[in-house]
Design a protein around this nucleic acid. Structure first.
Length: 393
RNA sequence: GGGUAGGUGACAGAGCGGCCAAUUGUACCAGACUGUAAAUCUGGCGCCUUCGGGCUACGGGGGUUCGAAUCCCUCCCUGCCCA
C-alpha cells in the first residue's frame, strides 16, 4: 500500500497506492471542499502537477448529498477528477462551526456525535463516526478520515485529554463500521463474480486514516498516537495543528509524535501549511499535506513569488527558510508593473500575463483574476512538493 | 418668465440648532487568511499633532444665536412642472 523509495535522514520519498492509482509522496492535496477546487478544472489541476485532491464529507453531505454523488459514480466521476480523492471526515467542521456565535449554526457535541446546523438554512444534522464513514464510502473516497474532535487553542489539559480519548473511541467506532462495510461489499462482489469461491477478498478498498490529537501536551499527543496505533489503521494524521497555537508548538508536536508512528505507513499533517512549514514537516518525516492557503489566498490577491531560480530549500544557518515571498497583487505599486507575477514561474498565468493586468482584473472584479492567481499559487505549491520529492535529504 | 425641489467629504446619500470632522454604502489605501460559513474579513480614508488636542470644512457672501451643515437674507448653480 505504501512504499518508501528513499528515506534519507528523516525525510521520506515514496508512493502511496489507492483505488484510483498511485500518488507520489510527499504530496500536497489541493482542496475541493464542495467537489471543486475553486476556480479551476480538474484538467488544469492535473497539469499543475496535482495527483490527488481533498473533498469534504460535511459539505458534500449537505449538498448535494452523498447518495447523489454515489449515483453519479463517486466523487471522482462526479467532478471529473481522474485520480484519487481523500475526504476529510467533518471533524474540522465541529471545530470551525462551533466557534460561531449565532445559535443558528452552533454545534452540539456529545459522545454519540456532533449535532450541526446548516449555516445556510438552519436545518439540523447529526454526524456520528458511523455516519461519517457511511458518507465517505458513498462518496467513493480513496482515503477516508476518521471522525475526530479538533480542540481549539488554547485548550486545558483536562479538555485535551477528554477530547483525545473521545477521538480514539470515535476512531474505533469508525474502524469497526468501516471493516464491517468493506467486508459486506467484498462478499457481495465476490458472490456476483463466482458462486464457487470467494475470490475477490483482495479487492481494492479505501484506506482509513486515524487522527492524532492532544493539543500542545507532549504526553497527551503521544498517548493519542499510542491509542490509535492499536487500531492498526492504514495511515496516521496529525490534527489539531495550526489552530492558533504558537509556531514552535507545531514543530514540537511533530517531534513528539512522528517517532511513534510506523515507518511503513503514510503520515498526514492536516491543514498545513505555509511553504516553510511544509518543508520543515517533510524534513521531519511527513508525507501528506492539505491547506487552503494557496487557493484562498490566491482569491484574496496574495501570491507566492520565488526568490531563487529553483526553489532553494537549503536553510541558511540559524535563520528561517527564505526561498519565497508573498506579494499582494492589489497593491498600488503593481499598477504599472508589467513583469510576470513571478519571473521564475512557468505557470500559465506567469507565461502570459503581467502583474499590472492581474491587478487590474482584481480591481474590477473580473473572475479571471481568481483563476490566474489560483493557477499560479497552486503551481508554486505543487512545484515545491515536486522539488521536495526530487531532492535528496 | 412663473412655480417647486434641492446644492454635504472621490461618488452616492444621511443629518436639519449643541452629543458633527459629520451615519451608511461604494470607490480608494493597507493588512489578515493554515483538515474553506471565506471571490471573505479587519483597519485606514480633510490637514497638522508632543496623540491631550489644534486647524480648515456641509455652493458663495452676509446675518440671528453663548453656539449653525442645520434658522434668516441675498447671490450663484442644478433638477422637475407650467408658460
Amino acid at each position: 500500500m505504501f512504499k518508501l523509495a528513499d528515506n534519507k535522514n528523516k525525510k521520506r520519498v515514496g508512493k502511496l497506492d489507492t483505488m484510483h492509482g498511485f500518488v507520489n509522496t510527499p504530496f500536497f492535496l489541493p482542496i475541493a471542499t464542495k467537489g471543486a477546487v475553486k476556480n479551476i478544472t480538474p484538467e488544469e489541476l492535473r497539469s499543475l502537477g496535482a495527483e490527488i485532491v481533498l473533498g469534504n464529507t460535511y459539505h458534500l453531505w449537505l449538498r448535494p448529498g452523498e447518495k447523489l454523488v454515489e449515483k453519479a459514480g463517486g466523487l471522482q466521476k462526479f467532478m471529473n477528477w481522474n485520480g484519487p480523492i481523500l475526504t476529510d471526515s467533518g471533524g474540522y467542521q465541529v471545530f470551525s462551526l462551533a466557534g460561531r456565535r449565532d445559535q443558528k449554526s452552533g454545534v452540539k457535541l456529545t459522545e454519540k456525535g456532533a449535532e450541526f446546523r446548516d449555516p445556510l438554512d438552519g436545518k439540523k444534522y447529526f454526524m456520528t463516526p458511523e455516519k461519517s464513514i457511511e458518507i465517505q464510502l458513498a462518496l467513493g473516497s480513496d482515503i477516508i478520515m476518521v471522525l475526530d474532535e479538533c480542540p481549539p487553542y488554547p485548550c486545558s489539559r483536562e479538555y485535551a485529554l477528554q477530547s483525545l480519548e473521545r477521538t480514539t473511541r470515535w476512531a474505533k467506532r469508525c474502524k469497526e463500521y468501516f471493516d464491517a462495510q468493506i467486508l459486506k461489499s467484498k462478499l457481495k462482489n465476490s458472490k456476483i463474480d463466482s458462486k464457487f469461491k470467494i475470490q475477490n477478498l483482495k479487492l481494492k478498498r479505501p484506506l482509513l486514516f486515524g487522527i492524532v490529537q492532544g493539543s500542545v501536551y507532549k504526553d497527551l499527543r503521544q498517548e493519542s498516537a499510542r491509542q490509535l496505533l492499536e487500531l492498526d489503521l492504514d495511515g496516521y494524521a496529525i490534527g489539531g495543528v495550526a489552530v492558533g497555537e504558537p509556531r514552535e508548538k507545531m514543530k514540537k508536536i511533530l517531534e513528539w509524535v512522528l517517532p511513534l508512528l510506523p515507518q511503513d505507513k503514510p503520515r498526514y499533517l492536516m491543514g498545513l501549511g505555509r511553504p516553510e512549514e511544509i518543508v520543515f514537516a517533510v524534513e521531519s518525516g511527513i508525507d501528506m499535506f492539505d491547506c487552503v492557503i494557496p487557493t484562498r489566498n490566491a482569491r484574496h490577491g496574495s501570491l507566492f513569488v520565488r526568490k531563487n531560480l529553483r526553489l532553494n530549500l537549503k536553510k541558511s544557518k540559524g535563520s528561517a527558510l527564505n526561498f519565497y515571498q508573498t506579494i499582494n497583487i492589489t497593491n498600488e505599486k503593481f499598477k504599472k508593473d508589467f513583469k510576470p507575477i513571478d519571473p521564475r514561474c512557468d505557470c500559465y498565468a506567469c507565461q502570459n500575463y503581467s502583474r499590472a493586468y492581474l491587478r487590474h482584473l482584481f480591481s474590477v472584479g473580473e473572475p479571471l483574476a481568481g483563476r490566474l492567481a489560483t493557477i499560479h499559487n497552486l503551481k508554486f505549491y505543487l512545484d515545491l512538493m515536486r522539488s521536495l520529492r526530487n531532492r535528496g535529504g
